[in-house]
């Protein structure tokens, strides 16, 4: 990862103890936030941003670090969501954290299967295989009522959401569940990236022949990348379904959702973990911002919802194209550049 070299001047700006203190303060602020933030902020901004950021980490581990494509992130999210639903429902003795983990593992197995073509082909051809997953699972969860416990509307909602008897269904509870899960998985991802596995994946991405020559097991590493990525997507999907939407169905995880995750990675910056949250914030905030802007200007009568959605599409598309041309490493790289400049100030970085 390039950030190890790039962030060097920035870290020099703050001594280690100061950074630790900052991290602790930030951590406390994040945990205490529900006491101050209102329901709207938690429900409509913070929870979706963090959950989609987590889904972004999943795709980024695959795309940014291992250089493999997926257009089917939402499919693996839906597997996580439906697995978690059935686990919570059918195995009442299974505590919530374990249910999330098992749901993630089930998604990982599916990811492994749809990652098999990566052993023979490269590049965007893989997009087809993951698109296949996208359509297949949307169909599966719509056509087999067993997955939604034969509910008439084919929707799922969390049967229970509690840890050690504490009910997590109010907004602060869901927020803390999301934050805690994401923090743990972020820490895990950071360690995966820095571990031998992460280095192997990056070597594969940069030049797979060279990676094979130095003895990296190409096939098993690629499949592992798909499995890890799908695990993250699965957990994110379960959180998205239960902590954010509350009630969802197979179409909550359609192709547009997959594109959303892809855009998060592209906008946030590939091969950056923190960038995913910047990308997610962009994706979550842009529609809210547009709606508010139109309301503020008093143009709600002129611009209807359909107009805003189309405008949003144009904006997202333009952002992607401009970022790909100007800053292929996304918002995370922009942030790094700003930090580097501040660290070197008043000199030029």
């Amino acid at each position: 990862m390039s950030s190890t070299t790039l962030s060097a001047p920035a870290t020099a700006a703050l001594p280690r103890t100061a950074r630790r203190a900052l991290a602790v303060v930030l951590g406390l602020a994040v945990l205490l936030l529900p006491a101050f933030a209102d329901e709207y902020w938690l429900n409509s901004i913070l929870i979706p941003t963090i959950v989609m950021g987590l889904a972004g980490i999943g795709l980024n581990l695959l795309m940014g670090y291992a250089g493999l494509v997926s257009l089917g992130s939402a499919a693996f999210m839906s597997i996580g969501a439906f697995s978690a639903y059935n686990l919570l429902l059918r195995t009442p003795w299974l505590p919530l954290p374990l249910a999330l983990i098992v749901a993630g593992l089930i998604a990982a197995v599916a990811g492994l299967l749809f990652g098999l073509p990566s052993l023979r082909i490269k590049g965007f051809y893989l997009a087809a295989s993951t698109l296949g997953a996208q359509f297949f699972f949307e169909w599966l969860f719509t056509n087999f009522a067993w997955f939604s416990n034969h509910s008439l509307t084919l929707t799922i909602s969390a049967p229970r959401l509690e840890i050690f008897g504490i009910d997590l269904r109010p907004a602060p509870g869901r927020y803390l569940l999301v934050v805690a899960t994401t923090a743990l998985l972020y820490w895990l991802a950071a360690n995966i990236v820095r571990s031998r596995i992460g280095r192997d994946l990056m070597a594969l991405r940069d030049m797979d022949k060279a990676a094979a020559v130095i003895g990296i097991p190409v096939a098993s590493r690629k499949l592992l990348a798909y499995a890890i990525s799908s695990f993250y997507a699965g957990v994110a999907g379960a959180l998205f379904a239960f902590a954010y939407l509350g009630t969802s169905d197979a179409h909550s995880f359609d192709l547009d959702k997959s594109f959303e995750v892809l855009f998060i990675v592209l906008i946030g910056g590939s091969a950056s973990l923190f960038g995913n949250f910047l990308g997610a914030a962009f994706i979550v905030l842009t529609p809210i911002f547009l709606t508010r802007l139109v309301e503020l200007l008093g143009l709600s009568a002129v611009f209807d919802n359909g107009f805003l959605i189309n405008l949003e599409h144009v904006l997202f598309g333009l952002t992607i194209v401009v970022l790909l041309i100007r800053e292929p490493d996304g918002l995370a790289q922009m942030l790094r550049a700003i930090r580097a400049r501040w660290a070197a100030w008043p000199l030029r970085a």
């Binding site: 250089g67 494509v69 590049g123 965007f124 997009a127 594109f259 892809l262 592209l266 189309n310 405008l311 949003e312 599409h313 144009v314 997202f316 598309g317 333009l318 952002t319 992607i320 194209v321 790909l324 041309i325 292929p328």
Partner: peptide, 19 residues
Amino acid sequence: RSPLTLFMATLGLSFVIEG
């Protein structure tokens, strides 16, 4: 750029054009 980047660019482009 790599074919993958161009693919992503056309993906962005498709959102712009349909929008």
